[in-house]
Every structure is written in structure tokens, then in C-alpha cells.
Amino acid sequence: MKEKTIIRFSILIYWTFFWGLSVIDKIIPDVHHLWVGKDFFALFIKFFGSLGLKDPLFATIALALISGLEVINFVFYLISFINFAKGKEAHTEKWFFRAILSSITLFGLFSIGDQVFGDRFQLLEHGLFWLILIASWALFKFISPSNNKGFSFGPKKGIQLALIVGVIITTASSISIIDFSNRTFSNVDSAVEGEEVVSGVYKFNFPFLADKIVWEKTINKFKTTHPDLKINYIYTGPSELNSKKKTHLLLYVFTDK
């Protein structure tokens, strides 16, 4: 395989998956086993609601139109990819251009929507995607013929050493990952120990793995170990208090006798 072919393959596979998964995300609403996705319906409902268009029909039609365009994008990329796999260069380029054109049109529409709905962060996000699409096309189309080279790795010893070092790094990382996982996985459902930081005020440092189950266990354990105390307030520390970045969540429990 030549460099040009691999780069073109990488670009096509990326955008084919990008749009294929976007379509699947629309087909599978809500959260399911093996699929979380994003709730675009809720997002659209909120956007249109903010415009004063509270009828869900508007959001539904808009989402259906967007999904339709995404399907077109996906099909274009897929056809380009199939042509690429068959070695039909002219067809590949033609379909890739169509796919890029329809994709930038869609991101253009998204950007108009972002301006209308006043979402500047999404405007930046969509603008960046738009730019990357154009750059992908430029790279795909104008890859220099000098980039169509084979490989030369130098002496065999070098590549063998690289593979050995790669395997050692992978093994060391995997051992460390499994060890860390064994040491910390219990945080998923273990109660957190509180520390009395002020008389009657207890602080709980929740680890990253903790969720609502940990919260419930923590409170129940606290009540069991401090039967003489009455919880009169629970304060969730805002992110500003959590300046050390090591803790996921700070919780303060205010008690009285």
C-alpha cells in the first residue's frame, strides 16, 4: 500500500463512520444497552421552544429534515468508499466531493440555526467541523503525487526493536491499568468516609468512579455510624471549591445533635 492510499482510506473511513453513526443515533432514540447517544429530540424541542414554537411538530420536522440530510451524507461517503475499495479513482473523487458538499451544506445550516438560537459554543463546534471537512477535501483531492510512495524503514533491526519496545510499553500499560482497576473499582459502590472539618460539619471527597449509589450508601453509613447526629443540610461543593482537580465531587453534611 502507498501513503496516498492509506491517507485517503483514513479520511473516507472517518467520515463514513461519522455520518453512519450520526444516522444510527437518530434511528435509536434514548439510551439502550450498548448505545447511549445524544438526545437530539430534546435539544431541538428546547431550541424551538426558546423561539416560541412550542408545538413538538416543528422540532420533529426539523430533526427529520436534518436526519434526511445526514442519511444523504452517509450514502455519499459509503458509495465513495465502495468505489475506493474497487480502485475506481475517478468515481471515488466524484462521490467524495458530493459527500463533502452535502456535509458542509449541513454544517452551514447548523451554523445558521446556532445563530438563530444564540448558541455560540455550538456555532464554534459546527464552524470547526465545517473547516475540517473542507480541509479533508483539499487533502483528499490535492495529495501531492510525491506522497504516493512506498515504505522504507531502514535496517530490519530497527523495526524489530520498535516492535519489541511497543509490546513492552503495551504490556506495562496493561498491567498498570488492570492493577489500577483492581485497586479502585470498589469505588463504584463503596461508601465514602467523611471527615469532620468544622464542628458538626463533615466533608466527603467523592472519587471519580462514584455515582448516586455511592451517595446513598455514604449517607446511610453516616447515619448508622452517627446515630446521635441529625442531618439538617447537605451542601454540594461547587467546582470553584474543588480547586485541586483530584476530587470528583465535594459534599458537606451539616449536622446537629
Binding site: H32, L34, F208
Partner: peptide, 17 residues
């Protein structure tokens, strides 16, 4: 400090069941 990737991955996969 780094990033607790295990916690991140664990939460992602747990959210998918």
C-alpha cells in the same frame, strides 16, 4: 495529576450497560 481514564472508560461502558 493526570486524568483518571479508567473511571472515564468505566462510566462510559457502564452507561451503555
Amino acid at each position: 495529576v493526570g486524568r483518571d481514564r479508567f473511571a472515564q472508560f468505566q462510566k462510559f461502558f457502564a452507561s451503555a450497560g
